[in-house]
Amino acid sequence: MDQELLRVSGLTRYYGSRVGCRDVSFSLWPGEVLAIVGESGSGKSTLLSLLSGRLAPTAGDVSYRDRDGRWLSLPNLSEADRRRLQRTDLGVVHQNPRDGLRMRVSAGGNIGERLMALGHRHYGRLRGTGLDWMERVELDPQRIDDHPSAFSGGMQQRLQIARNLVTEPRLVFMDEPTSGLDVSVQARLLDLLRHLVASLGLAVVLVTHDLAVARILAHRMMVMRGGEVVETGLADQVLDDPCHPYTQLLVSSILQA
């Protein structure tokens, strides 16, 4: 019953002779939040692109178990199947909401897009779903016809989350979802994310350089450096009792409040 959702083995990506990430293996279970931490340039974003099927690996495999229990190897899937999976079961929340939103389309259109791509053809119901999701991500439903450009950064990020969650994906990839937001907005967004993840039973792979974000959201952590995983473990364990010297350095460099 409680089988893994994602199996990653020996995942490697080279950019020419430069290492993007090397020999990453792990499993992810339904409802689990895994944080990938490390300084910039450590291969976090490369790994996330590989995991979400947006980048082809040089070696290794990412397998996803679909709703029917079949294992699908993302790199070996046809482009059509991979893109279908990306619109239904998977979600990607980009660091910059402009990468994940259609800026010239209203909030409601943004939320409804994935449903329309799946063949929903009833305006009234699409509208209803849009209003419902506006509320669930704590956006004012009255602003459903506003364009994202009229939204603040925090609101755009909420909208991006709603746009991804509308098809009830099972696995969401988040790339620094809270960076670039001011501290109070960050806190509210983290609160919202924690609530959504728990209530929907989402599995999340979260990339962040902010250890505080990882501590609040993640069950498990993976520390990366120079394209390789140097330490993995339960989030609290890694943060409270780091083993690898690099992790110790990362943890000790957090400013104490």
Binding site: R102, V105, S106, G108, G109, G112, E113, R114, M116, A117, L118, R121, Y123, L126, R127, I144, D145
Partner: peptide
């Protein structure tokens, strides 16, 4: 799907 997003925008507006 995006073709219907355009039509959705029309009706919304």
């Amino acid at each position: 799907g995006v073709m219907h997003v355009k039509l959705y925008e029309d009706i919304a507006e």
